[in-house]
Design a binder for these strands. Structure first.
Lengths: 147, 147
DNA sequence: TAAAATAGTTTCAATACTTAACTATTAATT
DNA sequence: AATTAATAGTTAAGTATTGAAACTATTTTA
């Protein structure tokens, strides 16, 4: 199926033109937000994000973020010291430490997200309804690439 | 225009569900590639990428990558020591140092890209022709977000 | 011509990462 | 049931990456 192959090539090309710079822009915005207003790094912000979504043990976080367990353990240390995360030993299996956001951590995340959504909304103002639909469907389709 | 707003919300939601994990997966693949086969970091790989595309001075790189000039200067040091990049003082303005890839750097980039494209092609195998079209159009539309 | 601005580098301290070694706990083997 | 192996997490030590401050070289501006 030659035409599918050509479409693949095109999709890859466009992906590389668009996603890395866009993601980099978003990261820069997040960094400014997280650093200036809350004095945490983008990586720390991502850890909070993962914890809230239920990736709440050291090993899961390490896998999700593709870094070593000690690295995550230490990153969590910082967040605990900042009062944003709590460690609680699991009752089912006491080897595990379950991580939860404190109220402060929860609130911080809300604030950053609120601001970031506002910022993205501005960016998406450049897209009309039809384009937004296309983006929504594309995101849906691209999930298949994650598997 | 209430429906456009709802579409925006949806698009943002899907974007956050899809792009960060996908990009993270791609980065992990790049890391494995670049580290295992060529002993360079993902960041160094990106520097090579920028240099080839014409972002070829320290200041431009610093701006493009959102890090400080000393950091880039040192990162370039590493690449020069590895024989992947050359520094050449500009003739027009001798304050500038123009960066170019050596043959080895050029070849490395080709290899990594080739392999990464192959890998992405496999991932995109999960998408049919119609979905690929949607992705292509979405990428096109999202470029507007870069302004 | 003197002062200001720009490009890049060096130095130094802080941060974040990895590997290796360790403790505590649970699962598997005999 | 007791011993061994595996798993979750932490600590420690060494390396790499980063940014701020101070510096040199060069060009622009006043």
């Amino acid at each position: 199926m030659a035409s599918t192959e050509r479409l693949q090539e095109q999709a890859i090309e466009r992906f590389w033109e668009t996603v890395p710079p866009l993601w980099s822009t978003i990261r820069a915005h997040l960094r400014a937000q997280a650093t200036d207003q809350f004095d945490i790094s983008v990586e720390q912000f991502h850890v909070l994000r993962y914890v809230r979504r239920g990736t709440d043990t050291i090993s899961e976080l390490a896998t999700a973020k593709n870094i070593s367990r000690p690295a995550i353990s230490q990153a969590v240390d910082v967040l605990v010291n900042k009062g944003l995360v709590k460690r609680v030993q699991s009752k089912q299996d006491r080897r595990y430490v379950e991580l939860t956001l404190t109220d402060a951590g929860d609130h911080l995340l809300d604030e950053v997200f609120k601001e970031t959504r506002e910022w993205m909304r501005e960016r998406m103002g450049a897209l009309n309804a039809a384009e937004l639909e296309v983006v929504i469907h594309a995101m849906e389709a691209m999930k298949k690439m994650l598997k």
